[in-house]
Design a protein around this nucleic acid. Structure first.
Length: 220
DNA sequence: CTCTGATCATTA
DNA sequence: TAATGATCAGAG
């Protein structure tokens, strides 16, 4: 699948597959679908990347670089509420002294997002989960302000080396959580003296309260 | 090894 | 039962 040439083409591709079960989509793409996501947590996202022609792969870029659009699948329940938080990007834990919000990965990835809801309550077998109506989103001025405020608060913790104080509870919309192979994974970080130490890698995630509001606004 | 795609699973 | 911390697979 070649990359879509415009946002409109991308949305048309989404409309065509809305209502498909994951089994149907996998069959059309001629790829195998695992029995569940226990050992294949990224399957749904990769299926949609394939179906829609996303090209960035595992590079640190939006999925559709030429359109500046990031693709996010989001698991929802029958009421349309998100079932999981949404991973955004890894958090810089060293060497980020001059970074401004407008230059951050958080800003670049969230400035334009194609949300693809998937009805994915845990009691629905993976194969039977259905793709919902996708929509293109830009943060409202208020949402952007919230994101920026959170980002600055969280970056301050990282800059000051307050590693032990980092909890998922910081932030209104964004939070910092572990993002690594396991709890033993290590990356360079700063301690309180500004020295480089090894610490658990973290990522920025969107809290479900934030994505819930965004979904409700769209489908209200 | 890092970053992507995320969800799992235990805790509070 | 929601939230937090832990975890899994693949690409590059």
């Amino acid at each position: 699948m070649h990359p879509p040439e415009s946002a409109e083409e991308l949305l048309n591709r989404c409309r065509r597959i809305a209502g498909f079960t994951l089994e149907e989509l996998a069959a059309e793409l001629a790829v195998a679908l695992p029995k569940d996501l226990k050992r294949d947590k990224g399957t749904v996202g990769q299926l949609l990347e394939l179906a829609l022609g996303a090209s960035a792969g595992s590079k640190a870029e939006p999925d559709f670089p030429h359109l500046g659009i990031e693709l996010k699948t989001i698991p929802i329940d029958a009421q349309g509420a998100p079932l999981e938080s949404t991973y955004v990007c890894v958090a810089p834990m060293s060497g980020f002294a001059l970074e401004r919000f407008e230059d951050s990965w958080v800003y670049r990835k969230l400035s334009r997002v194609l949300w693809v809801p998937v009805l994915a309550s845990r009691d629905i077998p993976l194969a039977q989960r259905t793709i919902g109506q996708a929509f293109l989103w830009r943060p409202s001025p208020a949402e952007l302000a919230t994101l920026q405020q959170d980002w600055e608060e969280l970056m301050e913790l990282l800059r000051l080396g307050q590693l032990s104080q980092i909890k998922g509870q910081h932030g209104v919309a964004l939070q910092l959580r572990p993002k690594g192979a396991n709890s033993l994974a290590l990356t360079d970080a700063l301690n309180e003296d500004g020295a480089t130490v090894q610490a658990l890698p973290r990522g920025f995630y969107l809290k479900t309260s934030f994505t819930r509001a965004l979904l409700q606004r769209q489908f209200a």
